[in-house]
Simulated scan of single mutants.
Amino acid sequence: MECPVLEVFDIETGERFSPLEGHAGQVQALALSPDGDRFASVADDGFVRVWDSISLECVWTAKAHEGKAADVTFCGNEAVITVGADGDGRLWDVV
């Protein structure tokens, strides 16, 4: 079984950057921080990951939900809200 990846593309050239690996399940949602400096992802593995938009490195991660993590959104630039497939919502400080 292949490891799920996030594929990132340059919006001006369409060039594909190296895939971002980290989740052990299908990615369910992405969110961009208001300042555009970071983006967050959640997946079937229950993890939330925050990535630097320039370096494309994972800068923060947490096991957000025991089951699937279904959605994510930024709350300002320093926190994310995740929702599990069971409807449970959580607020995370990602500084």
Score class of each variant (00 low, 15 high):
residue 1 M to N: 09
residue 3 C to T: 14
residue 4 P to V: 07
residue 5 V to G: 00
residue 6 L to K: 02
residue 7 E to L: 13
residue 8 V to N: 04
residue 10 D to P: 01
residue 10 D to Q: 10
residue 12 E to P: 00
residue 12 E to T: 10
residue 13 T to V: 08
residue 13 T to H: 05
residue 13 T to S: 15
residue 14 G to K: 08
residue 15 E to A: 15
residue 16 R to I: 02
residue 17 F to S: 13
residue 19 P to A: 09
residue 19 P to F: 05
residue 19 P to M: 04
residue 20 L to P: 01
residue 21 E to C: 10
residue 22 G to L: 04
residue 24 A to W: 10
residue 25 G to N: 04
residue 26 Q to E: 13
residue 26 Q to M: 09
residue 27 V to M: 03
residue 27 V to R: 03
residue 27 V to T: 10
residue 28 Q to Y: 01
residue 29 A to R: 05
residue 30 L to S: 02
residue 31 A to L: 05
residue 31 A to S: 11
residue 31 A to V: 06
residue 33 S to P: 02
residue 37 D to P: 00
residue 37 D to G: 15
residue 38 R to A: 07
residue 39 F to S: 02
residue 44 D to N: 10
residue 44 D to I: 05
residue 45 D to H: 02
residue 45 D to N: 07
residue 46 G to S: 03
residue 47 F to M: 12
residue 47 F to A: 10
residue 47 F to P: 00
residue 47 F to K: 10
residue 49 R to V: 03
residue 52 D to G: 04
residue 53 S to T: 13
residue 56 L to M: 11
residue 56 L to F: 09
residue 57 E to A: 12
residue 58 C to M: 13
residue 58 C to Y: 01
residue 58 C to S: 12
residue 59 V to Y: 06
residue 59 V to C: 14
residue 60 W to M: 05
residue 62 A to T: 07
residue 62 A to P: 00
residue 62 A to Q: 14
residue 62 A to R: 14
residue 63 K to M: 11
residue 63 K to G: 08
residue 63 K to F: 06
residue 65 H to Q: 07
residue 65 H to P: 06
residue 65 H to L: 08
residue 65 H to E: 05
residue 67 G to F: 05
residue 67 G to C: 04
residue 67 G to M: 06
residue 68 K to P: 00
residue 70 A to R: 11
residue 72 V to E: 05
residue 72 V to Y: 06
residue 73 T to S: 13
residue 74 F to V: 10
residue 75 C to H: 13
residue 75 C to M: 13
residue 76 G to E: 07
residue 78 E to I: 06
residue 79 A to S: 14
residue 79 A to R: 13
residue 80 V to D: 04
residue 82 T to L: 07
residue 85 A to R: 09
residue 88 D to C: 12
residue 88 D to E: 15
residue 89 G to Y: 12
residue 90 R to P: 01
residue 91 L to D: 01
residue 91 L to N: 04
residue 91 L to S: 08
residue 93 D to K: 13
residue 94 V to F: 08
residue 95 V to G: 13
